[in-house]
Design a protein around this nucleic acid. Structure first.
Lengths: 353, 353
DNA sequence: CTGAAAGCGCTTACAG
DNA sequence: CTGAAAGCGCTTACAG
């Protein structure tokens, strides 16, 4: 005869009890409702066969007892946990946080739950993090930061865990990939500059670029050369930031030939460029220099900037990611490869030709 | 005799197998290592008694098989899951995302994992969200957004789930509270203005303030009155934003008596005030108006703003939250109430008296 | 529709 | 130190 669970359900919890109080389980509900544990389980399983009467009695008992299905136990039993891991660094940066929010919300709408896994800490490399996702038996893992090694990727996949990479290196074989058409955006940026009559384009990026950042800068340079222009390129710092934009500007505008158009691989850098160009070189934007950024962060719309930039199709990315995370693995033939177009947001930092 | 698990471990997974591949379990590891399941379990339980030799054999077997302890099953068995839920809205806003990151990282360092629960969606009120935390048997839930009803709070607590409220209404009884001394900061802001020689202070906030926002505005007004000044107060919009700052400025500076100091309950609003004051009213900051914000977001340090503002003690908040989330409930007598001081960040938007 | 039973993968006294 | 056994809380064929 069980001890712990047979506490009379009508006894309100005493203050002294609190520390030792256990979660109420299906057994207690079954007893109160006068049915079997199976019936309780079925009541909370959509589509299972329970009579309406049983159902109501169980629901009532669950309500009074404060019963909540243990999703962990359910996960163990069903081999499907409803957990999706989100691997991300710099979750306090504008873009990652927007995406994290969108994905988490859509996951919740689908009845799933997001486990947030931060990479980049001292002891938290991507492999360690993915192993944690394995520990928690996530149905799928969505990687937004870092580049997982092929071996750990295999390990996830072999264990039947779906793996979705967002804006990562797409040469890793196995996972689904959701990508941005960075090159296309860069070409579009150059096109805009040319149309505005600019003839001395420049691009500012970082020393150690992520694949996305490199793709933007490289495609821009390539497109410029294709029309016979040799753009100045400044690579500064380890990460894209406002300060790098300021620094890049100093370099750019003290050179022999000053650029008349600057493509920045992200917005923060663009703000730095704009401010430095104005305050340190007395230039007007866009009359003297046109500037295009990437990310469409909130401040891009603020008065002093009004930055023309590329947005991330956050909603579409999130939708695809959640779809892939939910889809049954068996149902799909090959890994997916989805490429999305970053929409241009036209504001006022590009001259009108 | 078990079928599924008895697949020879040395057979590499075939491509066709993938869809049906199961996670490898302790049994398979035990078999390969030639020990009992208990031994496997003990090997992965810090402090359990296993001989070094057994331990090594188990570890080797686990490595070849790619075994990862199932933390869900462990949680069911141990009645402790290592899961901590983070309830948050607007995770893409500056402050929440900083805090989310800090807490998540510290949680990981402590061997725990963060489940991100977004509130504020259509069907996602605080109660629904908290119920989800119950479903996943989180050891603790940290609430950073929304105000949970007393009833659901009781339900969590009764189930032995720790509940930590950050900057929430502290009249809710039961949970631990981590609070900011908003009133103190507001008083300090007024003091700074007075020292700068300002005599016409104003405060801008929202119509529908959170407790934190109200506390800042109210304390500022009160402190001003205490020295015989009646500050102008503008309440605009449902949420603090750049645009509200712009709007508030139009109101403030078309009034009969223009303020010479404005305290904004957050930075975004302050940026709006500064830009509007400069561009629409031709005023100089801080010569004509002093401005103080709250949040110390990244842009506060950017060239055009250089905003004097209050920072959030993010690290201290996170540390306390994680401590409380980890502490054994039995060990603590009463709910904790911790009040932290927001440090002032002095920049250039306040005149030097 | 319903319940008894076996199963999911783990932990942990218990006895050796 | 070690293994067999009972337990955690759930699900799901299976037989009625």
């Amino acid at each position: 005869m069980p001890g712990r669970d047979s506490t009379p359900p009508d006894t309100p919890p005493q203050e002294e009890d609190l520390a030792s109080r256990r979660f109420v389980g299906a057994r207690a509900v079954a007893e109160l409702a006068g049915v079997s544990r199976s019936a309780v389980s079925r009541t909370f399983t959509p589509g299972a066969s329970v009579s309406e009467e049983t159902r109501q009695r169980v629901l009532a008992a669950a309500e009074t007892l404060g019963y909540h299905v243990n999703h962990l136990a359910r996960g163990v039993s069903r081999q499907e946990t409803g957990i999706v891991c989100l691997v991300v660094a710099d979750i306090d940066a504008a873009q990652p946080s927007r995406l994290t929010r969108a994905i988490t919300e859509k996951l919740q709408d689908a009845g799933k739950v997001a486990v947030l896994l931060c990479v980049g800490g001292p002891s938290d490399d991507v492999a360690t993090t993915l192993r944690r996702a394995l520990n928690y038996r996530a149905d799928a893992t969505i990687v937004m930061s870092g580049t997982p090694a092929q071996s750990i990727v295999r390990e996830c996949l072999d264990n039947g865990q779906r793996l979705i990479l967002i804006s990562r290196d797409d040469r890793i074989v196995g996972p689904d990939n959701i990508l941005l058409d960075n090159a296309g955006a860069a070409r579009q940026a150059l096109g805009l500059f040319l149309r505005a009559g600019c003839r001395r384009p420049a691009v500012v990026t970082t020393e150690l670029g992520t694949p996305s950042l490199s793709a933007r800068a490289d495609a821009f340079v390539e497109a410029a050369r294709a029309v016979g222009l040799e753009p100045a390129v400044v690579r500064l710092g380890q990460m894209t930031s406002y300060d790098n934009g300021v620094g890049a500007t100093r370099r750019l505008f003290t050179a022999a030939e000053r650029p008349d158009a600057v493509f920045c691989v992200n917005d923060a850098t663009a703000f730095g460029v704009i401010d430095a160009a104005r305050h340190e070189f007395g230039l007007r934007v866009p009359e003297d220099v046109s500037v295009i950024g990437f990310d469409n962060v909130m401040q891009a719309g603020w008065m002093p900037y009004q930055l023309t930039t590329f947005d991330h199709p956050v909603d579409a990315i999130a939708r695809h990611a959640v779809d892939l995370a939910s889809g049954s693995r068996a149902a799909r033939a090959a890994p997916a490869r989805i490429e999305l177009t970053p929409p241009l947001v036209w504001r006022r930092t590009v001259r009108i030709g």
